[in-house]
C-alpha cells in the first residue's frame, strides 16, 4: 500500500460547497434582487414595532381616507394615507408583512414536513401504501387549488389559522411528489444499499441517508411555495375567509378597500403592490436557487 499519493501531488484545497453555490447563484441578477427584497421584508417584519409610525388598528377619526403625502391634501403623519376608518396604511402594511411572512413560513413548514414524510413513506413502503398516498395526492390535485382551499375553509370555518391549514393542504401534493421522486432516484444508488447492508433501520435510511440528498429540489419548491402560500392566503383573506378585520392582512385590506377604488386608489394600490413585490421576490429567489442547485442547468 505504498501507493498513497506522494505529498508533492497533494491537491490544492477545493472551494467549499457554499462558495460554489454562491458563485452560480450570484450570476443571476434577478435572484440576488429577490434575495435583497426578502431581506428587507424580513427586517421590516421583525422591527415592525419600531419602524411603524402608528398602531395598525388605531382609527384616526380626523382622517378618513387621507391621501398619501405627495398628493394634494396628504400629510407626513400618514405617509401612504389612511383607509376608510382612519387607520394608517403604511403601518398596516408593515405589520401585514409580519403576518404574511408568518403565514408563508407556517404553511411551508407544515406542508414541507408532512409532504416529505408522506413522500418518503411512499417511496420506501411502495406497493399499496405508495398507491394510497399518491392517489390521495392526485385527488387533491384534481381540484383548482383556490377552489379547494375555499371548500376546506368553508368546512372548518373562516379565520387565519384555518386558512393557513387549507393552503397547506392544497400545496401538499407538490412536496409529496417531489420528495417521493427524489427519494426513489436516491434509493437506486449504491450508497443506500451499502448503508442497508451495514444493518441500518428503515427509519435511519429514510431520514439520515436519503433525505439529506433530496434537499436541493425541496428547498427550491419551498421557496416557490412560500409565494404561493402568501398569494393564496391573501386571496382567502380577500374573499373574507382568511384573516378577519381588523387584522392587518394584505388580502383582507384589499377586500375592505374594494368599494373605494375610484375615490381613494391608495387604499387598494398599496396592499396590492406589497403582495406583488413579495411574491415576485420569492419567485425570483426560488428560480435562482433552482438554477444554482440543479446541476443539469450548470455549464
Amino acid at each position: 500500500m505504498s501507493e498513497a499519493v506522494a505529498p508533492r501531488l497533494a491537491a490544492a484545497p477545493m472551494p467549499g460547497r457554499f462558495a460554489i453555490f454562491w458563485r452560480s447563484f450570484a450570476e443571476n441578477r434577478g435572484a440576488v434582487m429577490g434575495l435583497g427584497l426578502m431581506v428587507v421584508l424580513v427586517i421590516v417584519a421583525a422591527l415592525a414595532d419600531l419602524i411603524a409610525p402608528h398602531s395598525p388598528i388605531e382609527q384616526y377619526r380626523a382622517a378618513f381616507l387621507a391621501p398619501p403625502v405627495w398628493q394634494e391634501g396628504g400629510s407626513w403623519t400618514f405617509i401612504l394615507g389612511t383607509d376608510d376608518v382612519g387607520r394608517d396604511i403604511l403601518s398596516r402594511l408593515i405589520y401585514g408583512a409580519r403576518l404574511s411572512l408568518v403565514i408563508g413560513l407556517s404553511v411551508v413548514a407544515l406542508s414541507l414536513t408532512t409532504g416529505t414524510v408522506l413522500g418518503l413513506t411512499a417511496a420506501f413502503a411502495g406497493g399499496v401504501v405508495d398507491m394510497f398516498i399518491m392517489r390521495v395526492m392526485d385527488i387533491i390535485l384534481v381540484f383548482p387549488s383556490l377552489l379547494l382551499a375555499i371548500v376546506i375553509v368553508a368546512i372548518l370555518g373562516p379565520g387565519m389559522f384555518n386558512a393557513m391549514l387549507a393552503v397547506a393542504i392544497v400545496t401538499l401534493p407538490g412536496f409529496t411528489r417531489l420528495s417521493r421522486a427524489s427519494a426513489l432516484s436516491e434509493l437506486a444508488r449504491d450508497y443506500v444499499t451499502a448503508t442497508r447492508s451495514a444493518g441500518a433501520s428503515t427509519f435511519r435510511l429514510m431520514f439520515d441517508t436519503v433525505l439529506p440528498n433530496c434537499t436541493a429540489p425541496l428547498i427550491v419548491q419551498a421557496s416557490l411555495g412560500f409565494s404561493t402560500a402568501i398569494l393564496d392566503a391573501a386571496a382567502l383573506g380577500f374573499l373574507g375567509l382568511g384573516a378577519q378585520p381588523p387584522t392587518p392582512e394584505w388580502g383582507t385590506m384589499l377586500a375592505g378597500a374594494l368599494q373605494y377604488y375610484q375615490r381613494a386608489w391608495w387604499v387598494l394600490a398599496f396592499p396590492g403592490f406589497a403582495i406583488l413585490l413579495t411574491v415576485l421576490a420569492f419567485n425570483l429567489f426560488g428560480d435562482g436557487l433552482r438554477d444554482a442547485l440543479d446541476p443539469k442547468l450548470k455549464r
Partner: peptide, 21 residues
C-alpha cells in the same frame, strides 16, 4: 506493478515533465 499517484488535475500540474511525479 502500479503507477503511484494519479493524473494531475487543473490545480496540481507539476513543473517540467507532466509525468515526473
Amino acid at each position: 506493478p502500479t503507477i503511484p499517484g494519479m493524473v494531475p488535475g487543473i490545480d496540481d500540474r507539476p513543473d517540467g515533465c507532466l509525468f515526473n511525479p
